[in-house]
Design a protein around this nucleic acid. Structure first.
Lengths: 277, 277
DNA sequence: CGCGCTCTTGAATTCGATCAACTATGGTGG
DNA sequence: CCACCATAGTTGATCGAATTCAAGAGCGCG
C-alpha cells in the first residue's frame, strides 16, 4: 500500500507533542513519575500553580494533599469506591472508563497530567466515583480529602472559585459530548475530534506550506473507544477520509490536508459523497 | 388491540403526578406562572429554600435576582448567547436541546421547576449557553448575574458550597448519561429510564396488589429524543416490553409489571428472548 | 365534519458492530 | 541471527439494530 507505513506497535512515547505554554516545563521525566516525597511535593506545587491557583491557595492545598504513586496498569480508583477526596493527576496518563480487568477495559476519556481526575464525586453525600480510573503509565496523583478542603474553601474564596470554574468546564465538555453522541454519526464525530486537535491554525497564506499535523499519542483502539466506535470502524473512516483527500495517514501521524472539509464533515452537512474512482 | 387505548393527543397536564415531599406546595397554579412582581419574589424565596439554601443565603440571592416570564414555546435562552447569569427555573417546564424553530427542536433534557436551568455557563469566561432552552409551558425564571453573585459567594460560604454541589450533581448525571449512550443499546436505555422513574418501591409483599405506575408527563417523541432514539423505535420497544409481560402501556400510563426484568434489561444482561407466541 | 396533531405499524435501507482472516511490528529466547 | 509469539492495526464478509420512508389510526378542536 504505497507509503502509508509508520510505526505500528505503539504510539511512540518519545514522539509526544512538544510541551506547550506554561505546562512545557512540567514534564521532566516523561513516562516515569517523580520519585520520593520531596519530588512529589515540588511537583504538586508546580501543578497547582499551573492550574491557575494563587500562592496562598496553593500553600493551603499543599498541606492537605496526600500524594500516591500508582504503577502502570493499576486502578487509581474504582467506580463504586466511596469518593472521599478530590483527585488530582500530577504526572502520567489515566483512562477514565469501565471494565473489570486490564483487558476489556473501555476508556471513555483520556487524561494527561496535569489535570483533575475527579473534581466532582467527593462533594456528593455518599458519593462514589462514577468511573474507573486506570493508570496507562506510572502515575502520580494527589488526593485532597473533602473534609479538609471544605473549611479551606470557606476561608479562601479563590479556592471555591477555582473549583466552580473547573466543574463548570467539565459540565460544558460533557454536555457537548453528549450532544455529539446523540446527534452525530461516526464520521462526524471523528472529524470533530480531529478538527479539535488541530488547534487554531491561523489561515496559512501559503499553499501546501505547513500542513497541520495531528500526532496520535494514544492507541487507535483507545481513540475509537472514546468516540464510541470500534477500532475497525475507525480504521475504515480514516481510509475513507484519505480517499477523499481530506487527510493523509501514516501510522500515528495524521496530516490534515483540507481543514474546511473536515469541519464540514464534523457539522454533518457534507453529503458524504466519495469519488467512485 | 384490546384495551391499549388512552388519551392520545397530549399527555394530560391535569394528570401530573401528585406533588411529593417538600416541593408539593410549590405548584399552586399548574400550567400558569405566578403573575406580578410580588408573586414572583415570593416564589423565588420558596424555591431557593426548597433547593436547600439557608435563610441568609436566600436573602442574599433574592436581592440579586431578576425574574422574567417567558411564554410557552419561546426560548428562555439560545445557545451561543453570552451567558452572563445563572438561570433558575421557578415555575413551568423547559426543554434543553437544539433546534432553530419550535418545530424540529430536539430536546436533550427536560426540566421541571424548581431546578437550575444553567448553573455552569456563566462561570466560564466568554461562556455561552451550551444548549437552547425552550419553554414548554409558560415559564418563570430568575437570573442571577455572575458579577453580582461572585462577591456574594466570597462572603457566604454556604452559597459556594451549594453551587459546587449542584455542579457536581450535574457532572455525575452527565457522566452516567454519556456512559449509557456509548455502551447501552436502545432497549437498555429505555428500561433504565423507566426503572429510574419508579422510585424506591419498597418490595410490595402482596402479589399484584399495587403495581408501580409511571405516568408519562411529556410527549413520547420528547422522551424518545431524550433517549437518543426515534419515536418509531420507542413505540416498538414499548410494544416489545409489553409482549414480554414486563410492562403494560395504556396511552400515557405505563404499569410496570416486572421491575426485576426491567432492571435486567437495563443492565443489558437480559438475553433479549421474546416468546414466539 | 374535517383539520391538525400524536402515535403506531410496516417495509426498505443503512450504518456500524461482529466475526474472521491477514499484515506489520517489536520483543524474547534459542 | 532468526524463529516465534504477542500485540496493533487493517481489510473483507456478514449480521443486526435502529433509522427512514410511507401509510394508517386515534383523538381534540374549531
Amino acid at each position: 500500500m504505497s507509503d502509508t507505513t509508520g510505526t505500528l506497535a505503539r504510539p511512540a512515547e518519545a514522539a509526544a507533542a512538544p510541551g506547550r505554554s506554561v505546562l512545557g516545563a512540567l514534564n521532566p521525566a516523561p513516562g516515569r513519575a517523580a520519585r520520593g516525597p520531596a519530588a512529589a511535593a515540588q511537583r504538586l506545587g508546580a501543578v497547582l500553580a499551573a492550574l491557575g491557583l494563587g500562592p496562598a491557595e496553593t500553600q493551603t492545598l499543599e498541606r492537605l494533599a496526600r500524594t500516591r504513586i500508582v504503577p502502570a496498569g493499576q486502578c487509581v480508583f474504582r467506580r463504586d469506591d466511596a469518593a472521599h477526596a478530590l483527585v488530582l493527576l500530577l504526572q502520567g496518563d489515566v483512562a477514565l472508563g469501565v471494565g473489570a480487568a486490564e483487558t476489556d477495559f473501555r476508556p471513555e476519556r483520556l487524561l494527561h497530567a496535569p489535570a483533575w481526575l475527579d473534581l466532582s464525586s467527593a462533594w456528593l453525600d455518599h458519593g462514589t466515583h462514577a468511573l474507573d480510573g486506570r493508570a496507562l503509565t506510572e502515575v502520580l496523583v494527589a488526593e485532597l480529602p473533602r473534609e479538609a478542603v471544605q473549611p479551606a474553601l470557606d476561608e479562601r474564596p479563590g479556592l471555591a472559585r477555582h473549583v466552580i470554574t473547573g466543574l463548570a468546564r467539565e459540565v460544558r465538555a460533557l454536555t457537548l459530548n453528549t450532544h455529539d453522541l446523540m446527534h452525530k454519526d461516526a464520521p462526524a464525530r471523528l472529524a470533530a475530534w480531529l478538527h479539535e486537535r488541530l488547534g487554531p491554525e491561523p489561515a496559512a497564506a501559503g499553499g501546501a506550506g505547513a500542513p497541520s499535523v495531528v500526532q496520535l499519542t494514544e492507541r487507535k483502539r483507545d481513540i475509537a473507544s472514546q468516540l464510541g466506535i470500534t477500532p475497525e470502524t475507525l480504521s475504515r473512516l480514516m481510509r475513507s477520509f484519505m480517499r477523499r483527500g481530506v487527510i493523509d495517514v501514516a501510522g500515528y501521524t495524521v496530516r490534515v490536508l483540507d481543514p474546511g472539509a473536515l469541519a464540514g464533515i464534523a457539522r454533518g452537512d457534507e453529503p458524504q459523497v466519495e469519488p467512485a474512482a
